[in-house]
Simulated scan of single mutants.
Amino acid sequence: MSIRSTLPAALIALAVFVAAPAHADPCVDIAKQLAGQIDGLKVNFSAANITYLTHPAAKELSLGCRGKDYSIELYAKTDRKMKPEFFNLVGSATALIFTVPKDDAVTGTSRCLKRMGILRGNTITMRYRRLNLECTRNKTDASITVRRGNNE
């Protein structure tokens, strides 16, 4: 084979790879939108379909995409004695991620978080506006996981 016969094939292959669009991770795109719309929220890093976020009102904050049983998931953790800023953060993020009205998102997430106690226990699982909410607490921390199932 001569250089003249392989050169056009190499140029065509190079053109195909250069022209192919880059596919971004949808979790990272959603996280960037959240960071742009919620004050104080920053995107940390992504690993294994989870994008880790930071915010002054939360100890831990992450956004997960495409798990076995869910299409998207928001996880937030704070001190056991929750502050109003945490309720606002979780409600705002839930509204933006799952495209529900902010009032409904704040109502559902705060209802789940406030139900934990002596009478109902330390783990609450509920469904609100097609969202699966799971709130847990221990001696020092409280957390909420908001999910939407794969089939919804």
Rank of each mutant, 00 (worst) to 15 (best):
residue 35 A to H: 00
residue 75 Y to S: 12
residue 69 D to N: 13
residue 8 P to I: 02
residue 136 T to A: 10
residue 119 L to N: 13
residue 11 L to T: 09
residue 132 N to C: 01
residue 44 N to Q: 15
residue 114 K to W: 10
residue 26 P to V: 12
residue 120 R to M: 05
residue 87 F to K: 01
residue 93 A to N: 05
residue 17 F to C: 11
residue 105 A to N: 09
residue 58 A to Y: 04
residue 118 I to L: 11
residue 130 R to Y: 06
residue 16 V to E: 09
residue 140 T to R: 13
residue 62 S to K: 15
residue 6 T to H: 10
residue 64 G to A: 08
residue 44 N to A: 15
residue 9 A to H: 07
residue 93 A to P: 09
residue 102 K to N: 13
residue 138 N to R: 09
residue 41 L to V: 04
residue 60 E to V: 02
residue 122 N to I: 04
residue 102 K to C: 05
residue 56 P to A: 01
residue 34 L to H: 10
residue 12 I to L: 13
residue 60 E to C: 01
residue 64 G to D: 02
residue 132 N to M: 06
residue 41 L to I: 02
residue 116 M to Y: 07
residue 70 Y to R: 03
residue 147 R to G: 02
residue 93 A to T: 02
residue 100 V to S: 07
residue 112 C to V: 12
residue 93 A to W: 01
residue 23 H to Q: 10
residue 38 I to P: 02
residue 120 R to F: 06
residue 151 N to W: 11
residue 124 I to T: 13
residue 93 A to Q: 03
residue 82 M to T: 15
residue 114 K to N: 11
residue 74 L to I: 12
residue 42 K to H: 14
residue 13 A to R: 11
residue 150 N to M: 02
residue 121 G to M: 00
residue 132 N to W: 08
residue 49 N to K: 13
residue 34 L to P: 06
residue 52 Y to I: 11
residue 107 T to H: 05
residue 9 A to N: 04
residue 90 V to H: 00
residue 123 T to D: 13
residue 117 G to M: 03
residue 127 R to L: 08
residue 19 A to C: 08
residue 137 R to N: 15
residue 118 I to M: 09
residue 41 L to K: 01
residue 38 I to V: 07
residue 56 P to D: 04
residue 146 V to S: 09
residue 88 N to W: 00
residue 5 S to W: 13
residue 11 L to E: 09
residue 23 H to Y: 13
residue 84 P to K: 05
residue 67 G to W: 03
residue 53 L to F: 04
residue 145 T to I: 07
residue 26 P to E: 07
residue 121 G to I: 02
residue 126 M to F: 00
residue 39 D to I: 03
residue 63 L to D: 06
residue 64 G to K: 01
residue 66 R to S: 15
residue 11 L to N: 05
residue 15 A to V: 11
residue 26 P to Q: 05
residue 152 E to R: 08
residue 117 G to R: 04
residue 29 D to W: 12
residue 12 I to W: 13
residue 135 C to I: 10
residue 24 A to H: 12
residue 52 Y to D: 12
residue 98 F to G: 02
residue 136 T to K: 13
residue 142 A to H: 05
residue 50 I to N: 00
residue 95 A to K: 06
residue 114 K to R: 13
residue 14 L to C: 14
residue 136 T to N: 14
residue 147 R to T: 04
residue 114 K to T: 14
residue 124 I to Y: 08
residue 10 A to T: 05
residue 20 A to S: 06
residue 58 A to E: 01
residue 76 A to Q: 03
residue 90 V to K: 00
residue 58 A to M: 03
residue 137 R to I: 12
residue 40 G to M: 00
residue 31 A to G: 06
residue 38 I to N: 00
